[in-house]
Design a protein around this nucleic acid. Structure first.
Length: 288
DNA sequence: ATCCAGGGCGGGT
DNA sequence: ACCCGCCCTGGA
């Protein structure tokens, strides 16, 4: 593969820091010059933004322009989404101002499923470490500017991996979940191709919930952050619970607020855009 | 040292 | 339906 370069000027809603640090992905790392490098699919890419020029540089399996347009969701009008959400209340307005450069990536479904199974009751540095080790051991090597990168392993590449091998990689109690889910997908008990064609979010969600290690929160993350791209979901983790309680529910003990209550409120307030609203609120509450 | 971090599961009521 | 304890690991 040969290096490709692609530049864009004056793109709306595109701040690398917001995109890569808002919690949707685990394989992008900041470089010394402030740019970000990551692996997705069979690509290694560096993204650098200087003033209003964004430069994409790296190894791409296919045409870099198409690859970038798809992965970074460039065809979607985020300006319109932000205007709609900003009208809801001052909280949304403020969180959007903070995370105005966020775009929701179109990440590979399989990779997103496995990544978020690993995320369960875990912290980000450790999640990233596990995913890197998994890729290094079972993925394919890519060489770029004298550095080695590794693709995320396919289901086929994990076919013969034992539970113990996962445990040795540091997955902890998630080992069996990874093992079982990989097996289910290889046996096509869940067909990922077909999943892209189902229309109803609830239907797809129920299918995801049959996978080992996929509960409500993980399912919603998969629906929102993968190329399934559903915005009518609302992943509820400790940060979202915190921010929703602080802003709207105001219970003295946030741990007593039920998920159901939060989910209902989110749907009422944000409607079809609740997923993106979640991202702005999450990022704002976590970072600001 | 104890706790917690982007939950899920299984077994109680 | 809700509730609870437990599940690895490693950094604060």
């Amino acid at each position: 593969m040969q290096e490709q370069v692609y530049t864009l000027k004056n793109v709306d809603s595109f701040e690398p820091k917001d995109i890569f640090d808002c919690g949707q992905c685990f394989r992008w790392n900041e470089q010394e010059d402030g740019s970000y490098t990551g692996v997705f699919g069979e690509n290694v890419l560096n993204v650098k933004k200087e003033n209003d020029v964004i430069t994409f540089r790296g190894l791409c399996k296919n045409d870099i322009k198409k690859t970038v347009e798809d992965y970074f969701d460039l065809s979607r009008n985020y300006q319109e989404i932000k205007e709609k959400l900003s009208q809801i209340d001052e909280n949304m307005e403020q969180s959007i101002e903070y995370g105005k450069g966020i775009r929701i990536l179109n990440q590979d479904l399989w990779e997103t499923i496995i990544s978020f199974i690993i995320s369960a009751n875990n912290n980000i540095p450790r999640i990233k470490g596990i995913i890197e080790r998994l890729s290094k051991v079972y993925g394919r090597e890519l060489d770029w500017h004298g550095k080695k990168y590794y693709t995320f392993p396919t289901a086929e590449e994990l076919k013969d991996v034992s539970v113990q091998e996962y445990r040795n990689l540091g997955l902890g109690f998630r080992d069996i979940r990874l093992y079982e889910t990989t097996k289910m997908i290889l046996e096509k008990k869940i067909d990922l191709e077909e999943m892209h064609q189902n229309k109803n979010t609830e239907e797809v969600r129920n299918e995801l919930l049959t996978l080992s290690g996929v509960g409500p929160k993980v399912a919603d993350c998969i629906l929102l952050f993968s190329d399934l791209k559903r915005f009518d979901v609302f992943p509820i983790d400790v940060w979202v619970r915190r921010v929703m309680n602080d802003l709207y529910i105001k219970n003295e003990d946030e741990t007593k607020v039920s998920k159901k209550q939060i989910a209902k409120l989110a749907k009422e307030k944000f409607g079809e855009l609740e997923g993106i609203a979640q991202q702005y609120l999450f990022y704002w509450r976590r970072e600001a």
